[in-house]
Every structure is written in structure tokens, then in C-alpha cells.
Nucleic acid binder design. Structure first.
Lengths: 160, 160
DNA sequence: TATTGTTATACTCTATAACTATA
DNA sequence: TATAGTTATAGAGTATAACAATA
């Protein structure tokens, strides 16, 4: 039951929502829909990982490092769209938990090479089933793998 | 030139990005893609509206009120997913600019009825072309109206 | 008692400037 | 001079508790 499969250019459908307000204009905004969906997915992520006390960003760092051992700290920050100044505290937290290690590069002693530790890998292995279940739930909501691939294609077109 | 030795435990597509890091795992995360796209779209919105000094939320409030004159303050807040405590300052700002008016309901003197003013409507009319150009640019990036409708359908499936 | 708007407060996220140590 | 990491700080956005007025 989808009341939105028609282009809504000038003809506004009676978009009465459960709150009794007419959302018809604001729902034409792609950014608004994006934000709502993103908040919903992040909330689901946080609920799934609540027992683990892990933020999406922490998980992303660990995940990135598995295939990029020794990457520069600023490189990882930029890959995740985080400013290097703000990334310091994130690495501090992961290092305090023993999941990540900073090593001074011997080639350029200004840079910190980031390494996921054995403890970090063990931890990540515990996390993977939770993450996969989370992604499976999203997949089910979206209506299958084809729908998910379609969504990713469209999202990538919006990302510079 | 990538000197990182990465374990290839499963079949990984060669997802070398411009930063030289392997993003193949993290990019499997729907939430991560959603966040990137949302930030990109909000940044584009802010650039388009920068001369007007308007935040996405302010715009959303004005837009909602055009079709919901006299709506309860807490009703509008909830429709936008904003807690009523945090919504106070937003209405304060719009009221200070003369775009919105609070009127005590005579039926229930606890509630504030929100009304967009004539000045608010005039202002919104100036904004509409900017918004429409913004949406047109998104439409072009997505590849047409059908792609946009498809995106919205998929985003709505992720939203409770 | 319960609800609406409000205030106060704290915590996260993000943005910017400036410092340090290296190059 | 320039760069990587760091510190400090300020601004948003968000979450929670408590209060006054009203129901």
C-alpha cells in the first residue's frame, strides 16, 4: 500500500498523516526524506549495538582499519568525512579500549599509523553478526537485495 | 601506490577510492551511505540558502505552516521530529524575524497556535524559486523524476 | 493528575584557530 | 614554509528534568 508512486508535481495528494497535519509540501523535499530515513537507520543501529556501547563512527573506524592496517590517522579521518581535529578524541577512545594502536611512522615521524589490535579484531568479530542482522533488517524493509542496490546507486548519485 | 598489506579473507571487489584506502567493507553499510548522501544534500541546501540565512529546519516550519495555519506548537515540533523543549528557540527565532506568530488558543489556553504571517508568506515566496532550483539540481543528479520517486519510495520504507 | 510551553542543563557533533614536532 | 597531529573553544543539535499555567 503505497500512496506515493505518482509524480506529485503540481497536484497535491491529501497527505494527512497520523498527526493530523498536512505534510504535502515538506515531503516534496528530498533532503527532508533523507534526514528522516537516516535518523531512523542510525537509531536502529544504536539500538542493535546498545549493549556494546559502540557508536557508528567507532564501528566505521574498526571496519576501515581491517583492510587498511597502518593507514595514516588523517587519511582515515578524511575517508570518514571527519575533521582531523575531531578525530583525535575518537582514536583516543578506541586506543583506551585497546582496540586500536597508534604507531609513529618511521618514514615520516609526524604521522601516526593506525593499527587495529588483536583485541580489536576479536571485538569486531563479535560485532559482525550484530551488524549483519542489522543490515538484514534494513534489507527486509527495503524489499530485497535489488531494492537495496537501487537505493545505494541513487544515494551515490547524491554524494559528490 | 598502496603499501598497506591487507588480509583478503573473502572475495573483495577492488574498491580503491581516490584516497587510496579500501572502503569495501564500510560501503556495505546502508547507514553510512545514507549519512554521506544526507550531509551532501544538506550542504547543498545550506549553500543555496546561504544568502538568506535560513536553516533547513526554519524552512521546514514555514513550509508546514502554509498548509497548517494555527497548528499547535507541539504538533509542529513532533511532525518535524524535534522535541518540544528544543522547538521553543526555533519558534522564538522565527517570531523575532516576524515570520511566525504565536497566539494563545482560546479553547485551551495552554496551547500556542502557530501562524505564518504575511511577512512570512512574502519571505517564503522569495525562497520558493531557490528551493525549486535546489530540488531541480537534485533531480538532475538522480537522473530524472522516476529515479527521484524511486528514491523516495525506498527512503520511506526505511522510515518507521 | 496530566499536558503545553518553557527554562536550564548536559552531552554529542562539528568547525576553526593556533600550537608542536617534524619535514 | 608546509604538514600531521593535537589542544582549546565555540556553535549547532539533541536529550532530560523540572517548573508554571492550565486542563
Amino acid at each position: 500500500m503505497n500512496s506515493h508512486n505518482m509524480p506529485t508535481d503540481s497536484i497535491a495528494e491529501p497527505a494527512e498523516a497520523s498527526d493530523g497535519l498536512d505534510h504535502s509540501m515538506i515531503e516534496d523535499a528530498v533532503g527532508y526524506r533523507l534526514r528522516r530515513a537516516q535518523l531512523s537507520v542510525f537509531q536502529a543501529f544504536n539500538e542493535a549495538f546498545s549493549s556494546k556501547g559502540l557508536r557508528p563512527t567507532d564501528f566505521a573506524v574498526l571496519l576501515l582499519l581491517t583492510r587498511n592496517q597502518g593507514a595514516k590517522q588523517s587519511e582515515v579521518a578524511e575517508a570518514l568525512g571527519i575533521q582531523r581535529a575531531n578525530f583525535v578524541a575518537i582514536v583516543d577512545g578506541l586506543e583506551a579500549k585497546g582496540f586500536v594502536e597508534r604507531r609513529k611512522s618511521e618514514l615520516d615521524r609526524r604521522v601516526q599509523s593506525l593499527h587495529i589490535t588483536d583485541a580489536g579484531l576479536t571485538y569486531l568479530n563479535e560485532l559482525m553478526p550484530i551488524w549483519q542482522e542489522h543490515e538484514e533488517r534494513l534489507l527486509a524493509r527495503l524489499g530485497g537485495r535489488q531494492a537495496r542496490d537501487q537505493l545505494i546507486t541513487l544515494l551515490d548519485r547524491l554524494y559528490d
